[in-house]
Structure formats: structure tokens, C-alpha cells
């Protein structure tokens, strides 16, 4: 249970860091504001199920940012400072360190999502909304999964690289891709229309490629399985279960690759 010792310490260190508290507070605030304006700007129905579809765009921008910021310095920061030498002098394996740090850093991310959801849920239901418990829980679960994906990506970057600069550049690059990616499909359609081949839509291969990105996968889960007003395309690769499987792969594969490299590298 070596990883548990590390996770516990890491959770405490992460949760008491000012930057993390600020971002967690921002997440809760966005949830609350979203829930507050939802009945005002959305035609309805004002249920906690439909609310998921309403805020998923906001959360799809903010949660990746939080996950990456919380994760990107986890391993490389201590590797550079020398605190990692202290932890690895104790009987912890490198695997325990990486896994423990991921879990520890996830704790405040998950806590912020749950807190935001509780407040938002209450604001939506009271006074005129309606509670749809199962879809709402599914929505919270999907959002937590998104948080896990980006925190794991951040930790993967942190485990893979040897300097803090590279970790910062990589995390920033990933975030820019996230933001750009979600706009890419519309941009491609627009481009196709302007060169005079409308109607055809985006080629399948490109559409598959666009669907791989975790935030769009999250959007499809919310639209396909949670929000009654939402819908996804008919193609098999746009199915919400495929999207969930993609999220699971994103949460595990990059970190596994990064760990393999980290396990064999000289630390000093």
C-alpha cells in the first residue's frame, strides 16, 4: 500500500496549494453561475438532465485546464528539486510514486467537481426545476471521468519529460489543442463550403480523427446519454459508449507509456 502513503501526502500538498484552490474555486463558481442563469437563458425543460447539456461546453473548457495544471508538475517538479530522491530513498517503487501522485492530485479535482455539482444541482432544482437523479449522477460521473483524463494526461507529461520547461510547454500545447479541436469541425465545414463543395460534409476519416479527442468524446456522452435534448450522429464511432471507451484509453495509455520510459531512466 505504498502508493496510498504517497497519495495521502500528495492530496494534502495539492489541496493546500493556492493555485489549485483558485482553480477549484473557479470550477465551483462556473457551476453555480451556470445553474443560476440556466433557467433564465435556456427555454427548458429545466431539469438536472438537460442542465448537463447546457454546461458541458463550459466544463469541457475548464476541466481540461484544471486537470493539466494540477498534473503537469507532479513528478518533474520533485525530480528537479530533489524531493523525489527523498521519496525514492524510502521503500517506494517508481510505479507507486506515479500512481500515488495521480490519485493524490485527483482528490481535489474530484472534490471540486462534486462540490460544483452539488451546488449546481440545488440551484437548478430550486425553486422551479426538476430533479432527474440518474442522468445527473451520470453527468457528474462523466465530468469526473473528464477530470481524470486530463489530470492523468498532465501527470503523464510530468512523468515523461525531464525538465519543468518541457512539461510546461507540453501541457500548454495540449490545452491549446483541446480548445482548437472542438472548433475544428466547424472550421473544416466552413472551409469546404467556401471552396464550393457543400453538402458532402466532412470526410469520414477526418470526422473519426476529430472524434478521438477527449473533450468531444465527453460532449458526445452528455449529448447521447444524458441530455434528452441532445443527439449524436448515427455513425458507430460517434456512439456514446465508444466515447466512454475513448476516455478510458486516454486516461490510461499515455500514462502507461510515460511510466515505461520513467521506469528505465537515470534520475540523477
Amino acid at each position: 500500500m505504498s502508493w496510498l502513503v504517497i497519495a495521502r501526502q500528495e492530496a494534502w500538498l495539492t489541496a493546500t496549494a493556492r493555485s489549485v484552490r483558485l482553480l477549484a474555486g473557479l470550477l465551483v463558481l462556473v457551476c453555480a453561475v451556470g445553474a443560476y442563469v440556466f433557467p433564465v437563458f435556456d427555454p427548458g425543460p429545466h431539469t438536472t438532465a438537460h442542465f448537463g447539456g447546457y454546461v458541458s461546453g463550459w466544463l469541457g473548457t475548464l476541466v481540461p485546464l484544471i486537470g493539466l495544471v494540477v498534473g503537469y508538475n507532479a513528478v518533474v517538479g520533485e525530480r528537479r528539486s530533489g524531493a523525489l530522491a527523498l521519496s525514492l530513498s524510502l521503500p517506494h517503487g517508481r510505479r507507486d510514486v506515479v500512481f500515488g501522485k495521480l490519485l493524490g492530485r485527483l482528490a481535489p479535482v474530484v472534490a471540486a467537481i462534486v462540490a460544483g455539482a452539488l451546488i449546481a444541482g440545488a440551484l437548478v432544482v430550486y425553486p422551479f426545476g426538476e430533479l432527474a437523479l440518474a442522468p445527473f449522477l451520470a453527468f457528474v460521473g462523466a465530468t469526473i471521468t473528464l477530470g481524470v483524463v486530463y489530470t492523468a494526461l498532465g501527470v503523464a507529461i510530468s512523468t515523461f519529460v525531464a525538465t519543468k520547461t518541457r512539461a510546461t510547454v507540453a501541457a500548454f500545447g495540449v490545452y491549446v489543442l483541446v480548445v482548437v479541436w472542438t472548433e475544428l469541425e466547424a472550421a473544416i465545414e466552413l472551409a469546404l463550403a467556401s471552396i464550393g463543395s457543400p453538402g458532402e460534409g466532412v470526410p469520414t476519416a477526418v470526422e473519426v480523427l476529430l472524434a478521438l479527442e477527449p473533450t468531444t468524446a465527453y460532449d458526445r456522452i452528455v449529448a447521447g446519454a444524458i441530455d434528452p435534448a441532445g443527439s449524436v450522429g448515427d455513425a458507430w464511432y460517434l456512439d456514446e459508449w465508444v466515447a466512454l471507451a475513448l476516455l478510458v484509453l486516454w486516461a490510461t495509455v499515455p500514462l502507461a507509456i510515460a511510466y515505461r520510459r520513467f521506469a528505465g531512466v537515470d534520475l540523477q
Partner: peptide, 19 residues
Amino acid sequence: VRAREHLGVLPEGYSVYDR
């Protein structure tokens, strides 16, 4: 890990946890 279970270590180039 099992080797390090026998050890008490003062390593080179360590830093303490500031916080």
C-alpha cells in the same frame, strides 16, 4: 523496493518538501 526496505538513506542532491 525490497533492497531499499533494508536501508536508511541520506541521498545526494535531495531537497526537503518546502511546505
